[in-house]
C-alpha cells in the first residue's frame, strides 16, 4: 500500500468514528501531535499537584485535609494514566519527563500562578478543574483509543474535584466578611489565568485545524472558552462573587456572554517561562526525580538479584 493510500484509509477510519489503536498505521504527524498533546496533559496533571500540594499541611480541618490529599493524589494517578497513553505511542516515560524538566515540553500555564490563600484551593477546584473538565469531556471522544479511555476514567474521577472546590468557596462566601473577601480575591487572581487555559485564540492556534480534522480535538479553543464562561458566570452569581471583568455581559443575540480580551502578553510571557512560579515548579519536579533516582535504582537492583537467585 502506498503512503497516500494508507493516509486515505486512516482518514476514512477517523471520518467513520473508528478509533485508532496503538498498533494501527498512523501518519507520523498524528503520532507526534498526540505525543505532544498527551504528554503536555500528563505534565499538567503532575505539575498541577504542586500549588495545591502546598496547602495539604495547612488545610483548615481534617475533612478538608483528606479531601485535598485525595484530590492531589488523583492528579498523580491521572498523570500516570496519561504517561501510559503516551507510552502506547512509543514515547518512553522517562524521556517524556526529561523533556518537561529541560523546558522542551510545556504544561498548562495556570500552575505557574501561586496558591496564596486557602481560598485559592477552592478557586483552583472550581475554575481550574472546571476549565480542565470542559476540555476533558470533549476529549473523551478523541480519535486515539488509549487517550480516549484515559480521559473517560479521568473525567469520572474528576467529577468530585470541581464540586469540592465550589463547595469550599460556598462555605467561605457564607462565612465571615474576611472569608468572603478571601474568596473574592482568589477569583480575582484566578479568573483570567483560567480563561487562558483554553490556549490562544483560534486564529493564533497553530495546531487547531489539523487536530480537528483528525478528531484529536472536537472543539476549538474559543468554543471551549465560551462554554466555560457561559457555565461559570451563573455559578459565580450563586456564590455572590463578582467576576473581575467590567465588560462581561450577556449577549442576547449570540446567546452567550461577551467578555474582555485576554491579556495575551501575559499569556505568552508565562508560556515562555516568565510566570510567577515557572522556575519553582520545574525545580520541584527535577528535585523529586533526582532524589528518587537511588530509590528506583535500588528496586531494580533488588529485582535483578532476586531473578538471578531464582534462576540459579
Amino acid at each position: 500500500m502506498t503512503l497516500a493510500e494508507q493516509e486515505k484509509r486512516f482518514q476514512e477510519k477517523i471520518d467513520n468514528e473508528i478509533k485508532i489503536e496503538p498498533n494501527d498505521w498512523m501518519p507520523d504527524a498524528y503520532r507526534q501531535t498526540l505525543i505532544r498533546q498527551i504528554s503536555q496533559h500528563a505534565h499538567s496533571e503532575v505539575v498541577g499537584m504542586l500549588p495545591e500540594g502546598n496547602w495539604i499541611t495547612r488545610a483548615p480541618n481534617l475533612r478538608r485535609k483528606a479531601v485535598l490529599l485525595a484530590k492531589v493524589q488523583d492528579e498523580a494517578g491521572h498523570g500516570l494514566y496519561l504517561y501510559s497513553a503516551t507510552e502506547t505511542l512509543g514515547a518512553d516515560r522517562e524521556q517524556t519527563i526529561d523533556d518537561l524538566h529541560s523546558g522542551k515540553a510545556k504544561y498548562s500555564s495556570i500552575f505557574n500562578y501561586p496558591a496564596l490563600t486557602w481560598a485559592d484551593i477552592g478557586a483552583i477546584g472550581w475554575l481550574v478543574d472546571g476549565a480542565a473538565i470542559m476540555n476533558q469531556v470533549a476529549l473523551c471522544r478523541t480519535s486515539y483509543g488509549p487517550y480516549a479511555r484515559a480521559m473517560v476514567k479521568i473525567c469520572k474521577e474528576e467529577s468530585f474535584h470541581q464540586r469540592q472546590g465550589y463547595e469550599s468557596l460556598m462555605v467561605l462566601c457564607n462565612g465571615t466578611p474576611q472569608q468572603k473577601a478571601m474568596a473574592q480575591d482568589a477569583l480575582n487572581r484566578f479568573w483570567w489565568p483560567a480563561l487562558m487555559m483554553f490556549g490562544p485564540n483560534d486564529a493564533e492556534s497553530t495546531h487547531s485545524e489539523q487536530s480537528i480534522n483528525w478528531k484529536i480535538k472536537r472543539f476549538t479553543n474559543d468554543e471551549l472558552r465560551q462554554s466555560f464562561v457561559d457555565a461559570t458566570v451563573p455559578q459565580a452569581e450563586i456564590l455572590g462573587l463578582t467576576i473581575p471583568d467590567p465588560n462581561l455581559k450577556w449577549n442576547e443575540e449570540r446567546g452567550h456572554y461577551d467578555f474582555s480580551e485576554i491579556n495575551w502578553d501575559e499569556f505568552w510571557q508565562v508560556v515562555k517561562g516568565n510566570g510567577p512560579c515557572n522556575k519553582e515548579r520545574i525545580e520541584a519536579r527535577v528535585k523529586a526525580k533526582q532524589n528518587g533516582l537511588w530509590v528506583r535504582e535500588a528496586a531494580n537492583a533488588y529485582a535483578k538479584k532476586r531473578a538471578m537467585k531464582k534462576s540459579a
Binding site: 501510559s84 531494580n300 532476586r306
Partner: peptide, 29 residues
C-alpha cells in the same frame, strides 16, 4: 538503570466477572 519496567494491569471488578485490562504502570517487580 533507573527506569522500571512497564506492566499491564487487569482487574476483576466483582466476583463472577473476568479480569479486564485497565491500564499500565511501572514497577520494579
Amino acid at each position: 538503570n533507573t527506569e522500571w519496567p512497564l506492566w499491564e494491569v487487569f482487574i476483576r471488578s466483582k466476583q463472577g466477572l473476568n479480569h479486564k485490562h485497565v491500564g499500565s504502570l511501572r514497577a520494579p517487580d
